[in-house]
């Protein structure tokens, strides 16, 4: 078999994944695209390993490791996405614009939202003990 077939397929899959990473809005879809890119790399590894007839089979071993690491990555990634969703109410990554400077022109969506969502939780965290102390004070009085 020509090596060009798996190599070109890997390239095309990789670029498809690239497009997905850059174009998708939902964070989970971005993770899917990352998986596509990893698989393209795996395909390359296997094809070259077979072609070179490596006695250690480094390509296949690395492919196995990559698959494992990809599994771990998807687990951590999903955990992060879920955490973000819980805190920000969205998993759209173009709304997460904390990196922009505040007051800038670009981040009206992203800067407004965290302030709204963070404010009450912080206020809750600080107010609650004060309230309880106050009620306790009234009770003793």
């Amino acid at each position: 078999m020509h090596l060009a077939y798996p190599a070109v397929l890997a390239v095309l899959l990789f670029c498809t994944g690239l497009y997905g990473v850059l174009a998708r809005r939902n964070a989970i879809l971005v993770l899917m695209s990352v998986e596509l890119m990893l698989n393209a790399v795996n395909l390359n590894l296997v094809a070259f390993d077979v072609w070179l007839r490596d006695t250690l089979h480094a390509g296949q071993a690395l492919t196995l490791f990559t698959i494992t690491i990809a599994a771990a990555e998807i687990g951590i990634g999903l955990a992060i996405v879920l955490l973000v969703y819980r805190n920000r109410g969205t998993s759209h990554i173009d709304r997460l614009r904390e990196l922009a400077e505040t007051g800038g022109t670009g981040g009206t969506d992203g800067t407004g939202r965290p302030a709204e969502t963070d404010g009450p939780t912080v206020a809750d965290a600080t107010d609650n003990p004060a309230d309880t102390r106050l009620t306790r004070g009234e009770a003793t009085a």
Binding site: I93, R97, A100, G107, G110
Partner: peptide, 17 residues
């Protein structure tokens, strides 16, 4: 240059690539 700094990670990544 500041206009390019939108906070959108995808834009950054696209330009980087």
């Amino acid at each position: 240059v500041r206009r390019a700094q939108t906070g959108n990670v995808q834009t950054y990544l696209g330009l980087l690539l």
